[in-house]
Amino acid sequence: MGTIADGEGTELNGYGGEKEPGGGHGGPLTQEQVHGIKETWAILAQDPVERGVDLFMKIFEEDPDLKKLFYFADDGRELSREDQRMRSHGERVMEAVGGAVDSLGDLTAVVPVLTELGALHHKYGVQPSYFDTVGAALIYILETNLGDKLTPSIRQGWVLVYGIVGATMKKGMQQAMDHQNMAKTRP
Results as ranks from 00 to 15, higher is better:
38 K>F: 01
81 R>A: 12
124 Y>T: 00
187 P>C: 11
89 H>E: 06
75 D>F: 14
109 A>D: 11
90 G>L: 07
32 E>S: 13
116 E>T: 13
110 V>E: 13
144 T>R: 08
50 E>S: 15
15 Y>N: 14
116 E>G: 06
147 G>Y: 08
145 N>P: 00
118 G>L: 08
166 G>N: 10
11 E>S: 07
49 V>C: 11
152 P>Q: 12
93 V>K: 07
40 T>Q: 00
28 P>M: 12
172 G>D: 05
124 Y>E: 03
37 I>E: 01
36 G>R: 07
106 D>L: 05
5 A>N: 08
76 G>H: 04
14 G>S: 11
143 E>P: 00
73 A>E: 02
169 M>E: 06
173 M>V: 05
141 I>W: 00
123 K>W: 00
19 K>I: 06
110 V>G: 02
159 V>M: 05
100 A>W: 06
170 K>Q: 14
7 G>V: 06
47 D>V: 03
7 G>Q: 09
145 N>Y: 02
112 P>A: 10
1 M>Q: 12
54 D>W: 00
98 G>W: 09
172 G>W: 12
84 Q>P: 14
33 Q>F: 05
88 S>C: 07
149 K>M: 10
123 K>A: 09
43 I>L: 08
88 S>I: 12
170 K>A: 12
150 L>M: 10
144 T>D: 01
163 G>A: 11
157 G>A: 03
59 I>G: 00
119 A>Q: 07
78 E>Q: 13
181 N>G: 00
107 L>P: 12
135 G>A: 11
64 P>V: 03
154 I>L: 00
93 V>T: 08
165 V>C: 12
139 I>F: 10
176 A>M: 07
178 D>A: 06
177 M>L: 12
106 D>Q: 07
117 L>S: 12
30 T>F: 00
18 E>M: 10
151 T>G: 10
95 E>F: 08
82 E>K: 11
43 I>V: 14
172 G>R: 08
65 D>P: 04
156 Q>K: 13
111 V>F: 01
22 G>K: 12
125 G>E: 02
165 V>I: 15
96 A>T: 15
58 K>G: 01
104 L>R: 04
125 G>L: 01
182 M>H: 13
174 Q>F: 10
2 G>E: 09
85 R>Y: 14
43 I>Q: 01
156 Q>V: 01
74 D>F: 06
171 K>D: 14
150 L>C: 05
68 K>F: 02
17 G>T: 15
170 K>G: 09
185 T>G: 15
78 E>A: 15
172 G>Q: 07
142 L>M: 10
84 Q>G: 09
1 M>L: 13
15 Y>A: 14
7 G>P: 03
3 T>H: 04
176 A>C: 04
86 M>A: 06
40 T>G: 00
65 D>K: 12
95 E>T: 14
159 V>G: 04
3 T>K: 13
81 R>H: 06
13 N>A: 15
3 T>W: 01
25 H>M: 08
60 F>L: 04
79 L>F: 04
121 H>T: 02
180 Q>N: 06
186 R>I: 08
125 G>D: 02
186 R>G: 11
10 T>L: 15
107 L>M: 15
167 A>R: 11
36 G>K: 08
43 I>A: 04
52 G>Y: 03
13 N>P: 00
120 L>E: 13
96 A>I: 03
55 L>V: 02
123 K>C: 02
36 G>L: 09
76 G>T: 05
167 A>K: 14
108 T>E: 13
38 K>Q: 09
17 G>S: 15
133 T>W: 05
150 L>W: 09
183 A>V: 07
74 D>W: 04
1 M>K: 14
